[in-house]
């Protein structure tokens, strides 16, 4: 192992430690530091996970569409690997948004689910992610799979303005800009930064795995052709 590789490994290890410490701080701030909300009590603390994953659900759809567009321009599967990993991580974030939102709704509204505009549009986003992943899994050839994924992600990203503006355009139950104390705002900010970094790390890891899977498949087909 040369000096440069060893240095990179140390840097990655240090980054992982910083990330783990940041996330531990975010969890401590959410559970111990942030004051208990007067009307909702401890159930309000779900917001410190719900808001970051909701924001990430939107962000990863844009990343998926952006990387898909970059693939269509460059025809490089490196971009497709990013689009694929972003779609998978985005699907996880969107699922977490629905689950945490549902838990919060049970406590705040007394029901697990309400066909509120924001909830409905978040569910549509989850369906779009599922559609993109389903379409990708149904195509074998890598470049065709990349084209299908890119086209669907770009079309799906056109629904993002509707998801974002749902609470402004249509009246619903979902809160808009709720009042927060400075301690609550700091907790939320630390959570948003921490979860964004954690999911970005996860997406990068998955991107590398997808790249390696492709290399293994190519090697397999070369070996099969040789035999």
């Amino acid at each position: 192992m040369n000096e440069a590789t060893r240095g990179a490994m140390w840097r990655f290890a240090a980054l992982r430690i910083v990330l783990a410490a940041w996330l531990a701080t975010a969890v401590w701030l959410a559970l111990g530091f942030a004051p208990t909300e007067r009307t909702m009590g401890d159930a309000q603390r779900i917001v410190y996970v719900h808001v970051p994953v909701a924001w990430l659900g939107l962000l990863w759809m844009l990343v998926t569409a952006g990387c898909g567009a970059a693939y269509l321009v460059r025809r490089n599967l490196w971009w497709d690997a990013w689009a694929h990993s972003a779609a998978e991580v985005g699907w996880v974030c969107c699922s977490l948004t629905l689950v945490t939102g549902s838990l919060w709704a049970r406590s705040a509204w007394g029901t697990w689910w309400e066909w509120d505009p924001r909830l409905t549009t978040a569910f549509i986003l989850w369906l779009i992610y599922s559609g993109v992943l389903f379409a990708r899994s149904s195509v074998e050839e890598p470049h065709r799979r990349a084209r299908v994924g890119a086209a669907l992600a770009i079309l799906g990203s056109l629904d993002i303005p509707m998801v974002v503006m749902a609470t402004r355009w249509f009246r619903g139950l979902h809160p808009m800009n709720p009042e927060m104390t400075p301690a609550m705002r700091i907790t939320l900010l630390v959570g948003v930064v921490g979860w964004t970094a954690a999911f970005a790390w996860l997406a990068n890891l998955r991107r590398k795995q997808i790249g390696m899977e492709r290399i293994v498949r190519q090697s397999q087909s070369v070996l099969e052709a040789a035999c």
């Binding site: 369906l127 559609g131 084209r147 086209a151 079309l155």
Partner: peptide
């Protein structure tokens, strides 16, 4: 426009139901 673009991708070549599943979320709004 969505049906033409997605239909052209040929994802539903094996079963037409696949296309309905893919297109419905895009067209819900």
């Amino acid at each position: 426009s969505v049906g033409t673009t997605v239909g052209c991708l040929g994802v539903g070549r094996r079963s037409g139901a696949a296309l309905v599943v893919l297109v419905l979320p895009l067209l819900i709004p």
